[in-house]
Design a protein around this nucleic acid. Structure first.
Lengths: 151, 151
DNA sequence: TCATTATATATCGTGCCACGATATAACTAT
DNA sequence: ATAGTTATATCGTGGCACGATATATAATGA
């Protein structure tokens, strides 16, 4: 057999990993669209989320945002520049350490973020079970693969 | 009170959403690094995964890959071009429909993908429980928020 | 104290990648 | 056959993240 399309039987672990990534991308796509529709660039949304969602007592600096977003400092500076220019965010000089800039979400930013937060929570309530299911399958197949490796 | 750093108490739903996105980005960062170390661009890894991990009987065309990767067709063409040039992937003309290109991962591509698959399965076995925990918290806070909205 | 080193942010130039717009080829239907 | 649709491909553009570098402030230590 082995039709033109399926020259070989795809590894089930591979298939479930592919499914996981597809689910992730679907969610990210939803998130990007939601941000755009709310008038934000996706990265701006993520910036606002990490700034507004930082736990109490955190010094929300450029460096903090960079780490949470997985970006380099300079990329974060530019993202903050753009967001500040659009009135979503404000820099405040840290009195205790004048090198640092403390970030705060403006009222405008909060308003937009609020909408996005609601829709994301809804979406994640659907995605959650789906992701959990795939993750469980991954662990099953991963164990099968590693035990097969031993023998 | 209200120190300079925490002008206001952050919403718990916001915090847990931020935590979720941070967890996602951390995983994606791990994945990107793993791909780079294996000599692939992250997108190439994703392409190989979706091609090799497609369920049996799927016609793995450019359009299929584009949909799975969340990219436009033309972007996918370019990604396939680059990957083919590096010997990771091969195009085969579909005999039944000469417009279509059927994609297959080469032996070289499979070898690299195999390594990445193993390390990703391991990483996801750690990430899984962490994500599940955060997703559960999201649903709790989301419900609290929406029921508060009703009253 | 003041030189040295480290840290935090900012600036500048570069390159890649995804995209929109468009083109070409092949299949479909009437 | 001819119009319309689908699948890839090409080309030019722009944004965004990055590396390299600069500047300002803090911390260290002789």
């Amino acid at each position: 057999m082995s039709s033109q399309f399926t020259a070989e039987g795809s590894d089930p672990l591979l298939t479930v990993l592919a499914e996981f990534r597809f689910a992730l991308r679907s969610f990210l796509h939803f998130s990007e669209c939601a941000a755009q529709e709310a008038g934000l660039h996706p990265q701006q949304h993520q910036l606002l989320l990490q700034v507004a969602g930082a736990p109490r007592g955190t010094a929300v600096t450029i460096a903090y945002a960079a780490e949470r977003l997985g970006l380099r400092h300079n990329s974060t500076v530019e993202l903050v520049d753009r967001s500040e220019r659009e009135g979503l965010l404000a820099r405040t000089e840290d009195a205790a350490d004048k090198r640092r800039a403390i970030l705060q979400v403006t009222r405008k930013g909060k308003k937009i973020l609020g909408q996005l937060t609601a829709s994301h929570a809804r979406e994640l309530n659907e995605l959650g079970p789906r992701l959990a299911k795939v993750l469980k399958q991954i662990s099953v197949h991963a164990e099968a693969a590693s035990s097969a490796e031993i023998q």
